[in-house]
Amino acid sequence: MSIEPITGRYLTVDVAGAPRRIYFEEAGQGQAVLCLHTAGADSRQWRHLMNDAEVTATHRLIAFDMPWHGKSLPPEGFETEEYLLTTEAYIETVLAVIDGLGLEKPVLAGCSMGGRIALQLAALHGDRFSGFIAIEASDFQAAWYDIDWFHRPDAHGGEMGAALVSANISPFAPDQERWNTLWMFMQSGPGVFRGDLSFYTQDKSLIDRLGQIKTDNTPVHLIVGAYDMTCTPEDARRTAAAIPGATLAVMDELGHFPMSEHPAGFRPFFVDALGRMPRARSQAA
């Protein structure tokens, strides 16, 4: 029998003028690190690091489920709404969670679409953060698939989405964690993966903003896996090169969901990234 140190609670914040009930988990104490999950998944992707006693001895890791994902409900009226994530709504949500939790200059760690929005926040709201860890993050990715495949009445979008993203998981990933990672996609609500991909594959606004990111006081460190077929090392290199002062690490044996698919393989890269972040002043509770 064992009980993990992760605790989960709910926070209600306003986004786009309406309340969102957001589920968040946290573990540890010290420098706050706000962790963002990928498209079509939820905060469980971060559970391995949140259960890592050495990491949480000096860092307070917080991960939340975006509205529509995991245990965060969609907003009232969702039944008649087409879910399409936008850069604006994503930024507003992240900042609302930071304000709601009273976090002062957290490090922002995001993966995939979470990495994309981390770079958007670095460009537009850099002063709200201590630094950025952008994992499997790039300036823009055009879809090589049809995002409408993943929301249709005659097939299970979650199962198709999981089968698609399995192309992004490294053969070095332990089978158990490969399937746990895919399970989250299988559980994704109808149209949610599609709505996330709409943001990820159609919004090009970051490209022109990369050059305005200031890394002097808020470092930006990118991490990318060689088995990532969506955000390839080449994509991450191009993105890092466009951000003055950004650094990049390539993980030869990992894919697009490193913290979830291969926790042991990802750990040293994440610890290295944390070491590159400045220590913030005392953190609010």
């Binding site: 399995s166 192309a167 077929m229």
Partner: peptide
């Protein structure tokens, strides 16, 4: 057994 990046998946081959 442990394919190189891109050779690990049919969509990887396409990519």
């Amino acid at each position: 057994a442990r394919p190189e990046p891109g050779f690990h998946d049919i969509f990887g081959l396409v990519k």
